[in-house]
Amino acid sequence: MSSSTVRPENQEQDRGRDPLAEQDVAWRLLDSAAKLSYDPTTEVDWETPLDPDHHGASPEWSTLYGTAYWNELTDAQRKALTRQEAASVASTGIWFEMILQQMVLRDMYAKDPTDPRFQWALTEIADECRHSIMFARGAAKLGAPAYRPRRPVVELGRAFKTLAFGEAAYAAILVAEEVLDVMQRDWMRDERVAPFVRTINNIHVVEESRHMKFARDETRKRLRGAGAVRRQLNAIVVAIASYYIVTSMVNRDVYANAGLDPARARAEARVNEHHKSLMRSSCSGLMEFLASARLLTKPALFFYKRASLI
């Protein structure tokens, strides 16, 4: 943990701008990161072997929880499934964090490096690099393969990270982070979940709270004065990105890797109203923010409903 950030108080006055109005959020985030950040290589217990008596995630978050198939599974099968599902969510997190890093780097390219927003952006990217390594090691310890989104989704992500900018990029970042944050807040407090997974979730929740604050602030700021056409376009772009992020979180191969009947598992997960209801209730705050930013248009609602986010 390093010392608090030193602020060059006259920096922005020299440019004729109000630092409290435009830069205070970035300064506070830098101060917070200096006071409370983690090193997963030392904070997470990587040495203790995995105890198969633990879940990888709160069982209520399993895609099969509440289904007839779930009721037929043994306790060991349920735990094996949640471990594979948690690893899949972590792998999807790595995929999107790599997209996030590239969008933020592109946004900050050739901008003023003395600006605290620039410095916070690099701090966030450093966080995401550590998180991705942490997720990768965690998934490996859970005994899972390298889960990846389907090839068409990977290519859509490649296009999105190249073309998305401004509020579309930051709002999509916010959606991905908020959905993961809701899950992990439950998992990190659940004693049924493997201790090292709970530590990973706690680290991610603490550090991502700063990332979400920045994404909200940037989304609002970049939408100031935006016209109706721009808002409509960005709303649909963010909604489509959100749909593919959320629907890629649990890979279709987790069921076979947990020793289940994959065809039956996928069929029951697809119509699992418990899981859909949990996703909707957990994302109410996110939807309120998107509505306040006027990014919850009728075309966008179609994709959020398909992803069971609203």
Score class of each variant (00 low, 15 high):
81 L>R: 07
145 P>L: 02
92 T>L: 15
140 A>L: 10
134 M>N: 03
90 A>L: 14
150 R>G: 14
140 A>K: 12
119 Q>S: 11
109 Y>F: 14
113 P>T: 01
67 T>G: 05
104 V>G: 06
93 G>R: 05
159 A>N: 05
117 R>C: 06
71 N>R: 14
109 Y>A: 15
75 D>F: 11
124 E>N: 08
122 L>H: 14
147 Y>E: 10
142 L>M: 07
121 A>Y: 03
143 G>K: 09
115 D>W: 11
141 K>P: 08
93 G>T: 04
120 W>L: 06
155 E>S: 12
100 L>A: 05
92 T>E: 14
94 I>E: 04
159 A>K: 09
137 R>M: 00
136 A>I: 08
134 M>A: 04
161 K>C: 11
154 V>Y: 05
74 T>I: 05
164 A>E: 02
124 E>P: 07
91 S>A: 15
70 W>T: 07
74 T>R: 02
151 R>Q: 15
122 L>S: 13
149 P>D: 03
111 K>E: 04
137 R>F: 01
71 N>H: 14
164 A>R: 02
70 W>M: 08
68 A>V: 13
90 A>N: 13
74 T>M: 06
124 E>G: 08
138 G>E: 00
107 D>P: 04
101 Q>F: 11
75 D>I: 13
120 W>R: 06
128 E>T: 00
109 Y>C: 12
72 E>F: 02
156 L>C: 10
100 L>G: 00
105 L>H: 12
87 A>T: 09
121 A>Q: 10
93 G>M: 00
155 E>D: 13
73 L>D: 09
165 F>H: 12
117 R>S: 01
123 T>G: 01
144 A>P: 05
118 F>T: 01
139 A>F: 02
151 R>K: 15
90 A>E: 11
81 L>D: 00
143 G>N: 04
85 E>L: 07
89 V>Y: 05
86 A>C: 09
130 R>C: 07
129 C>F: 13
98 M>A: 12
126 A>M: 09
109 Y>S: 13
101 Q>Y: 10
115 D>H: 01
120 W>P: 10
83 R>M: 09
81 L>S: 00
75 D>S: 14
136 A>N: 09
148 R>S: 04
162 T>Q: 15
153 V>A: 12
81 L>W: 00
83 R>Q: 06
76 A>S: 13
147 Y>P: 04
83 R>I: 03
121 A>L: 02
150 R>S: 15
99 I>T: 03
158 R>K: 01
143 G>T: 03
142 L>F: 09
134 M>F: 06
